[in-house]
Design a binder for these strands. Structure first.
Lengths: 193, 193
DNA sequence: ATTGATTTCGGACGGACGTCCGAATTATTC
DNA sequence: GAATAATTCGGACGTCCGTCCGAAATCAAT
C-alpha cells in the first residue's frame, strides 16, 4: 500500500500550514486548523516549530525558495529579452490561473511582513532576489538607458517596477471578476517596453 | 476653550479605528484597542457600528472617499498628459513620504478584501474607480494604441497596469530600507511611457 | 417638572486562542 | 531485553476576544 504517506509529521504540518494560509489567510488561521488539516494533534505543532511564529517563518522560507526556483525556471526558457519578458508575464498568468492560492499566499506573507519585523526581512529579501533575477535575465541591454531629467534609472529600478507592475496588477485581478479575461490582459505589460 | 473636541463619539471611534488599523494592522487590532484610543467605552463601538465588521465597512467607505478625492485633486493639477502622469506619481510619493500609514491602511484593506466577500466588493470598486479616474485624465490620446500581436489593449487596461505598477512598487518600497531614496525612484515609472 | 427616547457606562458571558505539561507510545542504543 | 531518548498524545491553563445586557445619565418635547 502507501502512496506517499511516508512523510513525517513535521512536513505534514508545514504543508497543512501552507494550505490553510492560502485558503483562509494567516490572520484567521489557528494552530488547531493547521493541526486538523495535517491530521495531527495540536501539541505537535509546538513540538516541531516551537510556536506560531516559528511555524510561519518556516512557511516563508519554503515558499520563498519555491517562488525563486519557479521564477528562474521560467525566465531561463526565453531566448531573447523580449521572450524573457513574455515568460515573466506568463509566470504570473499561470500562477493566477492554475494556482491562485499560491498568489494569495505570497500576498498574505507580504501582509505579515508589513506589521511584523520578524517577517519583514525575509520578505524584503524575496522581493530583492526576484528583482535581481529579473535584472540578471532581462535588462542586460539597458545598462544606462531610461534617463529622465537629471536622473538616470538603473536596471535594478526598472526591474523592480516591472515586478511591481505584475504584482500590483495581479492584486487587482484577484479582487475583480472576469478573472480569466483580466489575466490575459496582463500581457499588456509587454507594451510598456 | 476647546480646539475641536466637539466631535461626537461615533466619529471619534471611526478616527481611532483608522489610526489603530494603520498602526497595527486590522488582523491584530481589537475593539478594545480602538475604544481606548478613542477614549470611549467598549460597548459604544457596538452601539454605533453594531459589530466589528460594521465598523470596518465604515472605515473602508470613508477611506475610499478620501483616496478618490485626493487622487482627483492631484490629477486635475497637471495640464498635459505628461504632467498628469507626474502628478499621479507624486500622489504616491507624497503619501509614502508624509503619511505612510495611509498607504499601509490601503494595503491592509486590500488584504481584508482578499479573504472576505464583504470587503471584496468595496475594494474592487475603489480600484475600479481609481482606474477610471486615471483613464479619464490621462489616456485620452491612446484610444486604440498599444497593439501587440492580435490583441489591442484598451486605455482602461493600461490605466489598470499603471495603477498596479504604482501600487506594487510602493509595496516593495515600504518593505525595504532607504525609503527616501526608493520613493524618488518611483519617478522611473515615467519612462515606461 | 414629567415623560420618553437617546446615549453612556460597567460588567459579565461564552468561546477561541496559543502555550505548556505529564503521561503514553515508539524508536534507538547498548 | 533493559535503558535511554525521541516522538505522540490528550488535556488543562490563563488570556484575550466580540458580543450582549441592564442600569445610569443625558437630552428632548410637552
Amino acid at each position: 500500500m502507501s502512496e506517499n504517506k511516508e512523510i513525517g509529521q513535521s512536513e505534514r504540518i508545514l504543508n497543512a500550514a501552507i494550505h490553510c494560509i492560502s485558503t483562509k489567510g494567516y490572520a484567521s488561521v489557528s494552530l488547531r486548523d493547521i493541526a486538523d488539516e495535517a491530521g495531527v494533534v495540536l501539541s505537535q505543532v509546538n513540538y516541531y516549530y516551537k510556536n506560531k511564529e516559528g511555524l510561519f517563518i518556516e512557511v516563508i522560507k519554503v515558499l520563498a525558495r519555491h517562488y525563486l526556483q519557479e521564477l528562474e525556471d521560467k525566465l531561463s526558457q526565453g531566448k531573447s529579452e523580449k521572450e524573457k519578458l513574455a515568460c515573466l508575464i506568463e509566470f504570473f498568468q499561470e500562477m493566477l490561473l492554475e494556482n491562485p492560492g499560491l498568489f494569495k499566499l505570497l500576498f498574505d506573507m507580504t501582509s505579515m511582513a508589513f506589521w511584523s519585523d520578524t517577517f519583514k526581512e525575509p520578505l524584503r529579501q524575496l522581493f530583492d532576489d526576484s528583482t535581481t533575477l529579473i535584472e540578471k535575465y532581462m535588462t542586460k541591454g539597458y545598462s544606462q538607458t531610461g534617463t529622465m531629467g537629471n536622473y538616470s534609472y538603473s536596471p535594478s529600478i526598472l526591474s523592480r517596477i516591472t515586478l511591481g507592475a505584475l504584482f500590483g496588477t495581479s492584486i487587482q485581478i484577484m479582487l475583480g471578476e472576469n478573472q480569466k479575461e483580466a489575466i490575459e490582459s496582463l500581457s499588456a505589460i509587454k507594451c510598456l517596453y
